[in-house]
Computed example of a mutant assay.
Amino acid sequence: MRPSPGRPPPPAEGGRGLTGRIIEEVVDQPGALPMISHALLETRHRRRGRLLTLAAYEESSGVRGMIATTAEQVYTRLSAEHRRAARRILLRLIAPGTTTPAKP
Rank of each mutant, 00 (worst) to 15 (best):
P10I: 02
E13Q: 14
I94R: 07
I67E: 05
L33S: 09
G14K: 08
R48I: 14
I22F: 00
R16D: 11
T76M: 08
I23F: 12
L54R: 08
T99P: 04
P101C: 11
V74D: 12
V26W: 01
M1Y: 04
P9F: 03
Y75F: 15
G31L: 11
Y75W: 11
G15V: 01
I89H: 15
P30Q: 03
R46V: 01
S79I: 08
S60Y: 00
R87F: 13
P10L: 12
T76P: 00
G15Y: 03
R92C: 10
G65Y: 00
V26N: 02
T100V: 12
T19P: 02
L91K: 11
I67S: 01
T98A: 12
R87Y: 15
P10C: 02
A56T: 03
T19Q: 05
A71Q: 13
G20S: 10
P5Q: 08
R84N: 03
R46M: 06
P101F: 12
P96I: 12
G65R: 01
R21Q: 11
P8T: 13
L90F: 09
G65C: 03
K103D: 12
T53P: 01
E42V: 04
T99I: 08
P34K: 02
S60A: 15
R88D: 14
G6D: 04
P96L: 12
P9W: 02
A95Q: 12
I89T: 12
I67H: 04
Y57M: 00
G31A: 05
K103W: 15
E58S: 05
E24Q: 07
S4L: 15
H82I: 02
S61I: 00
M1W: 05
R16N: 09
S79P: 09
G97H: 10
S79C: 10
P30G: 02
A32V: 03
T99K: 04
L41S: 08
R48C: 11
L78R: 08
T19Y: 08
P9E: 10
R16P: 05
G6R: 05
G65Q: 05
L52Y: 04
K103L: 15
P8G: 06
A68R: 07
A55E: 13
R44Y: 15
R7S: 14
T100M: 09
V63D: 04
P10Y: 06
V74Q: 11
L51N: 04
P96C: 08
R21C: 10
A85L: 12
Y75E: 12
A32M: 07
